[in-house]
Simulated assay, not measured.
Amino acid sequence: MIAFLNGCVAAKRTASALIDVNGVGYEVGMSARSLALLPQAPQQVLVHTHLQVRDDSWQLFGFMDSDEKECFERLITVSGVGAKVALAALSTYSPAQLAHHVAQQDVAAIQRIPGVGKKGASRIVLELKGSLVASDDDEAATVPAAPDSSHALATEALLSMGFTSAECELALKGAPEEAAEAALIQYALKRLGTDGA
């Protein structure tokens, strides 16, 4: 098991990063959140990892903190939730926010995750309730709920336009926290160079 990588950022891609560890390049799939936190090449970085071994492939997934890794590993135990959906969940919500929504059985909030329908959201709540632990300061996890809902809806809209989760995250970075969904989409499109055209 590869538990972490300690090396230099070689490159960032839309949904993954290349980490150079002593001359060996590891490609790690990452959430938009982790990609946004990843330093620019060629800076040194420690990335927590999860190795998924299948008959036809080995895939490495990377996380900028252990909470996100643990949350990812919990998510992929849910029936019907694969690595792609788990990364989408962590691109939409922080681990603390996701834990809060699961604890509150907020199926509607879980449905905002790209690729998750009502049945999938219900399964996530049912199978993870009690196993996802929010941070000690529950208020800290719940205060950003309203802005993040707008951010999540804006992200979903941008994804439906064909942008990647990483592009969405970077385009929305620095957006006004209290902005409505429509304003966030306009802000992101300007940063992406489309101006909504």
Results as ranks from 00 to 15, higher is better:
S16A: 11
V78W: 02
F72K: 09
H48C: 09
A36Y: 04
A197I: 00
H50V: 14
L46R: 13
A197T: 01
L18R: 04
A145E: 14
A154V: 13
E178W: 07
S150W: 08
D20V: 03
L159I: 11
F4T: 00
H100A: 13
V78N: 01
Q44E: 14
P176E: 08
R54W: 11
P147I: 11
A86I: 09
P42I: 07
N6R: 15
T49Q: 06
E181C: 15
A109C: 00
A89Q: 07
D67K: 13
A86W: 10
Q59A: 13
E70A: 12
A32V: 05
V116D: 03
Y187G: 06
S135P: 03
W58P: 05
N22F: 08
A152I: 08
Y93E: 00
Q59I: 07
E178D: 14
M161E: 02
L75Y: 03
S66R: 11
V133L: 12
A146R: 13
A141S: 14
A3G: 06
L35T: 08
D137K: 05
L51A: 14
V45H: 05
A11M: 07
D20F: 02
A134F: 02
S135Y: 00
E156A: 15
H48V: 10
A171Y: 01
V133M: 08
A96L: 01
V143L: 12
A180P: 12
D148G: 08
G7C: 13
L5D: 06
N22K: 14
F61D: 03
L60K: 10
S79A: 13
V102H: 02
V9W: 06
A154D: 12
R33C: 10
D20Q: 02
Q59D: 14
G162C: 05
L75H: 02
E167T: 06
F63P: 10
L159F: 05
F63I: 11
L87S: 06
M161A: 06
L189C: 09
D138L: 14
Q40R: 14
E27C: 06
A41P: 15
C8L: 14
L37S: 10
E27K: 10
P39Q: 04
A140K: 15
L38A: 04
P39E: 05
A3E: 10
I113H: 03
H101C: 12
H100S: 10
D67P: 11
P144C: 12
S165R: 09
A103G: 03
L192Q: 00
Y93F: 15
P39D: 05
G174Q: 01
T92F: 02
A15K: 09
I124S: 08
A41Y: 10
F63Y: 11
V45R: 02
T194Q: 09
L132I: 08
V85Y: 00
R54Q: 15
L128E: 05
G117I: 01
G130L: 06
V107W: 01
L46Y: 12
S165G: 07
S16P: 02
L172H: 04
P114A: 10
T164I: 07
F4N: 00
A179S: 12
Q104K: 03
D137L: 09
Y187E: 07
A175V: 07
S79Y: 04
K173M: 08
A41D: 10
V24C: 06
Q43C: 13
L192P: 04
